[in-house]
């Protein structure tokens, strides 16, 4: 089974492997979520959603449904 950003633990880092291009809006890429880039989970909101991540120097909050579409490779 492949892992996504939604599977990360708080503080854990990984590399973005692939973005499911059909479902991921351009905006997320533009904000720095790119393949091969390191991503770190900073915080989860209560009920595990949304997720607060650090990627490419940007601090972003995305919903779980989006995070589930971004597969990762853990270091």
């Amino acid at each position: 089974m492949f892992k996504t950003i939604a599977n990360l633990q708080i503080g854990e880092k990984a590399f973005i492997e692939k973005l499911c291009l059909d479902n991921i809006p351009l905006k997320l890429l533009e904000m720095g979520c790119l393949p091969g880039i390191e991503v770190q989970l900073i915080q989860k909101a209560p009920m595990q959603d949304p997720l607060y991540i650090k990627v490419n120097g940007s601090h972003l909050a995305i919903r779980r449904e989006t995070a589930e579409k971004i597969t990762i490779v853990v270091k």
Partner: peptide, 10 residues
């Protein structure tokens, strides 16, 4: 359908 992504500024 649209994306929810917000920046968490310093």
């Amino acid at each position: 359908k649209s994306l929810f992504v917000i920046e968490m500024p310093n």
